[in-house]
Amino acid sequence: MTFHNKMELRFKAKSENEAFARVTVASFVSQLDPDLEQLTEIKTVVSEAVTNAIIHGYEENEEGWVFLSAEINDNEVTIIIRDEGQGIKDIEQARQPLFTTKPEMERSGMGFTIMENFMDHVEVTSEEGKGTTVKLVKKLITNPNQALCN
C-alpha cells in the first residue's frame, strides 16, 4: 500500500448538513483525482446515507450526531456513515427497491438501491433503538494510463 489517508467527522442531524457532508467527502476523495462520474456517484451515495441518518435515524431531531468517516487506501475509498438513532427493524426489507417507511414525505425508497448501484460494496448493520451503520466501499479509476496496460 502506498497511499493512505483518513478523516473522521461528526455533525448535527440538521438537513443543512447534507450538502456540507457531500462536499466534505468529495473534497477528501478528490485527492485521488477520480473521474467526474465516479465523484458524482460518491456524492450521491453520501447524500442518500446522510439523509437517511437525519430523517429516518433521528427523525430530524437536531440534537443527534451523524458520524462520518472516509478512508483512502491506494485507490480504494471506504466511507462509513453512522447514527445513534432509532435503527432499522428489518434490514433486508429496507434494502428492497421502492421500500420506504415514509411514503408521506415523497421518499422514493431508492436510497439503498442507489448505494448498491454506485458502490462496489454496501454493508448495513443496525439495532433497533441503538442506531444504524452503513459502510460503503468503492475502487476508483485514478489513472487512465494504468487501465490501458491491464
Binding site: 478528490s30 483525482d33 477520480p34 473521474d35 467526474l36 462520474e37 465523484l39 479509476i141 487512465p144 487501465a147 490501458l148 491491464n150
Partner: peptide, 17 residues
C-alpha cells in the same frame, strides 16, 4: 478491460471540471 478503456477515454477528471 475494453469497457474500462472506453469509459476512461470518455472520462473527465475532477480536477479539470
Amino acid at each position: 478491460e475494453i469497457q474500462r478503456f472506453l469509459r476512461d477515454d470518455g472520462s473527465v477528471k475532477v480536477s479539470r471540471s
